[in-house]
Design a protein around this nucleic acid. Structure first.
Lengths: 112, 112
DNA sequence: AAGCGTTATTTCCTAACAAATATAACGCTG
DNA sequence: CAGCGTTATATTTGTTAGGAAATAACGCTT
């Protein structure tokens, strides 16, 4: 019997979810591609879904997380801010810490 | 901006989920009511859904977690085993520990 | 002014999920 | 042996989430 403890964490702002694993993945993809549509495609996610996620993130904070621009040089694009990058780092650090904690607890289940 | 870090944990056995918050709630309700149908009703859950959850739990372990009996004295019933009770306790203890850990990490987000 | 690559938004459709309903089986009780 | 309260399971219906596609708007470039 190979037990595993898994977890999902997310951050809520004013009672609605604002940052979770999916959103973090998307933010990182935007940072790599420079565009929301390309990021969505790289994650095999519909543009609509990606846009909704980003819209919800942007509405949740006062400091901007990503800056969208429409029209212009290359048709527009999306850029991750320093604040957004810091959020991602903090999230992943906390998430890893959570996983580490749960690993230490696993024997409590196995030993029953 | 009032941030909160939330989490869900669950235990997997052989790559499929075996115990999570919903199942724990259901197991506790069964322990209180002595019947799957009453437990489902008390949680405002359909009998079918409750049955599927319990069936999946029972198929995931060698030691029985709940014992179902059909027909007989009061038409049948469901009973939580000592092993099941121990599982619930361990789960809730670990879950609380996870929440406590996440609370200590919250300032990393707030201070960005 | 036309063309482009993007963001932004609506509408429509479908597929997965959930709920409701129906039916059967079971084993004690009287 | 009929009645009961349960577990067990299939079928049908309803609902909601999500994808697909179409359209518009935007602002640089040429």
């Amino acid at each position: 019997m190979s037990f595993k403890i898994r977890s999902r964490i997310w951050i809520e702002a004013d009672e609605h979810v604002f940052l979770g694993e999916g959103r973090v993945r998307l933010l990182k993809a935007i940072d790599e591609t420079g565009s929301l549509s390309k990021a969505a495609k790289s994650l095999e996610m519909s543009y609509k879904k990606a846009w909704k996620l980003i819209d919800s993130v942007n509405k949740s904070t006062k400091k901007p997380v990503i800056i969208m621009s429409v029209g212009g040089k290359n048709g527009g694009g999306a850029e991750l801010t320093d604040y957004g990058r810091a959020l991602i780092n903090a999230f992943e650090e906390i998430n890893q810490g959570c996983w580490d904690y749960l690993d230490t607890q696993l024997k409590k289940i196995k030993d029953l």
